[in-house]
Simulated scan of single mutants.
Amino acid sequence: MKALTSFLIPRDPRTVTHSTKAVAVMDGDGVAMKRAIGHGALPMLDPFLLLDDFRADDLPAGAKIPGFPDHPHRGFETVTYMLAGCMRHQDSIGTTGVIAAGGVQWMTAGRGIIHSEMPEPVDGNLRGFQLWINLPAAEKMRRPGYQEYASGEVPEVHFETGAIGRLIAGRLGSVSGAVQDVPTDPLYLDLRLSVGGSATVPVPTGHNAFIYVYAGEATVAADEGTRPVSLPSGVVGVLSDGDGVQLRTDAGAGLLLLAARPLKEPIARNGPFVMNDQRELAQAFADYRNGAFL
């Protein structure tokens, strides 16, 4: 745990260019969730391909919910971050484990992997997010691998204003996130703002960035001449370029702030595979059918 003073007001503060509400979807073996990125209004934000918000509250004792049985991936990375409950996983390269509340798993699918993710409520509750991040062409066929960290291994950033951030990836001041060495140099921050709270967060210039509010309501403060934008729970705010973002709330908020270097490469995408052209995409399906992912 590390405490930091407030960061300087950005010289070029980011503002909300547009916002969109997460949409209800079903995926896996009938899992109901909200899709914040990866739907018609916001199909992607290079290199972010998808963000799902899954939740179940006050389930009866012993209740089970559907999950994500064996399925393949190639060409990108998946990030599972849990707020409540657990996610049990296993895969075709022999990895098994449980992601508990506060923990994160950053999986690089690379050239191909088959895995399952099965949610397990704790005390009747489950809450988490899955993020998909594209890989550059030169990294798409790399060996699959994982970075996985328990809650206590995710650094906390304590702002002088009282805000608390859990730094999954990236760097804020002298604090480095749990996840390292990702090709797109991401920032992944889970930020909690108390009633009447605020925070100024540096964001690398040139990175594409967005905010997803998962609890309460947050306002992105604005530069002179630009109106502030309030984002309620379940809404994504896509940010302009700049060197930081100023956030505040009246009633309290929990939000994800994500930024990463855009790849600016062509994309051929179908279901669980994300490649650069149709030939590579067809080869991914052929390799999966022929057992090359095992």
Results as ranks from 00 to 15, higher is better:
135 L>I: 06
36 A>N: 06
245 V>F: 03
223 D>W: 14
213 V>T: 10
274 V>I: 02
90 Q>W: 15
116 S>R: 08
52 D>I: 08
92 S>P: 06
64 K>E: 11
38 G>W: 02
102 G>C: 02
143 R>N: 12
63 A>P: 10
275 M>R: 05
184 T>R: 10
224 E>M: 08
83 L>A: 14
241 D>R: 12
4 L>Q: 12
270 N>P: 12
278 Q>M: 15
294 L>E: 14
68 F>A: 10
233 S>A: 14
88 R>T: 14
202 P>A: 05
120 E>Y: 15
157 V>M: 11
41 A>S: 13
10 P>A: 11
78 T>H: 14
263 L>K: 08
38 G>S: 06
182 V>W: 09
120 E>F: 13
267 I>S: 04
26 M>F: 13
162 G>I: 02
55 R>G: 11
116 S>D: 07
107 M>V: 07
93 I>D: 02
170 G>R: 00
164 I>Y: 04
127 R>H: 15
264 K>E: 15
12 D>W: 09
48 F>V: 05
29 D>S: 04
216 G>Q: 04
47 P>F: 10
262 P>V: 07
233 S>R: 08
119 P>E: 08
249 T>F: 01
190 D>H: 01
164 I>V: 10
248 R>Q: 11
109 A>W: 12
161 T>D: 02
197 G>L: 07
70 D>R: 15
5 T>R: 11
113 I>A: 03
235 V>G: 00
218 A>G: 12
18 H>C: 13
33 M>G: 06
33 M>P: 06
222 A>V: 11
101 A>F: 00
190 D>L: 03
203 V>P: 00
202 P>F: 05
103 G>A: 05
95 T>A: 13
121 P>A: 08
279 R>S: 12
195 V>D: 11
129 F>P: 03
160 E>H: 14
280 E>V: 10
82 M>N: 05
34 K>P: 04
134 N>L: 14
245 V>W: 00
134 N>S: 07
